[in-house]
Computed example of a mutant assay.
Amino acid sequence: MVDGVDPGSSHRVPTPLYRAGGKGLNVSRVALQQGFPTLAVTTAGGASGAQLADDLAGSGIPYRLVPVASATRRTIALVDTVSGLTSIFNEAGPALSRAEWQALTAAVVDGLDGGQVHGGQTDGGWADDAPRPGVLVGSGSLPENAPADFYPGLVALAHNAGVPAIIDTSGAGILSAAKAGADLLKPNHHELMDAMGETDLVAAAGKLMGLGARRVLVSVGEEGMLAFETGRPGHLQAKLPAPLAGNPTGAGDAAVAATAVAIASGTTDLREILRLAASWGAAAVLMPGAGEISPRHAELAAQLIITDH
Rank of each mutant, 00 (worst) to 15 (best):
V79W: 03
A182N: 05
A130T: 13
R271G: 04
D308L: 01
Y18E: 13
I305F: 15
I306R: 12
A238E: 01
A227C: 10
M209C: 15
T267I: 06
R74K: 10
V137M: 02
E198N: 14
H309D: 15
S10P: 02
L300H: 04
A50S: 10
G173P: 09
L39K: 01
I166C: 01
I306S: 12
A238N: 02
D253P: 01
L217H: 10
A156C: 10
V79M: 03
M287W: 06
K179R: 15
D183T: 06
A227E: 00
L192E: 07
A165I: 07
P241C: 14
D129P: 00
G115F: 03
P14D: 09
S176H: 11
A50L: 08
A238G: 09
L25I: 14
R132S: 03
V220E: 06
A146I: 12
V68L: 07
T42C: 07
G291M: 04
A177F: 09
K23S: 12
A71L: 02
Q237W: 01
A283L: 02
S83N: 11
G134L: 04
A264G: 05
G35M: 07
G212D: 00
T169C: 12
R19L: 15
R271M: 01
H11V: 10
T249A: 09
H11N: 07
Y18F: 11
E91K: 14
A203C: 15
Q33F: 06
A227G: 12
N247T: 00
A203L: 15
N145Q: 08
A71R: 04
P295V: 10
T122M: 12
A44H: 05
G162S: 08
I174Q: 08
G221A: 09
T105Y: 06
V218E: 13
I88S: 05
L201V: 01
V82M: 10
A44K: 04
S176W: 08
A283Q: 01
L136H: 09
Q121H: 12
V109M: 12
V108N: 01
P94L: 08
G22N: 09
G197R: 14
T38P: 00
L157G: 09
D183Y: 03
L240K: 09
H297L: 06
K207R: 15
L276I: 02
E144A: 10
A69G: 11
L65Q: 06
Q102P: 13
A130H: 15
E222Y: 08
V109S: 15
D183W: 03
S59D: 14
V27W: 01
A177V: 08
T169G: 11
V79H: 07
R275F: 05
L244G: 05
A44L: 10
Q34E: 05
L226S: 12
V202I: 13
P243T: 04
A203Y: 13
F150A: 04
R271Y: 04
A158F: 12
T72V: 06
Q102M: 14
G206E: 10
A156M: 08
M193H: 09
P143H: 15
N247A: 02
A251D: 04
A40C: 05
D128E: 14
I273W: 03
G8T: 12
A238T: 00
Y63G: 06
I263L: 04
V13E: 00
P131M: 09
D6L: 09
E91H: 11
G197C: 14
L270W: 01
Y151I: 09
A53D: 02
S10V: 13
D55N: 10
M225T: 09
N145V: 03
N90W: 11
A258Y: 04
E222H: 12
S48G: 05
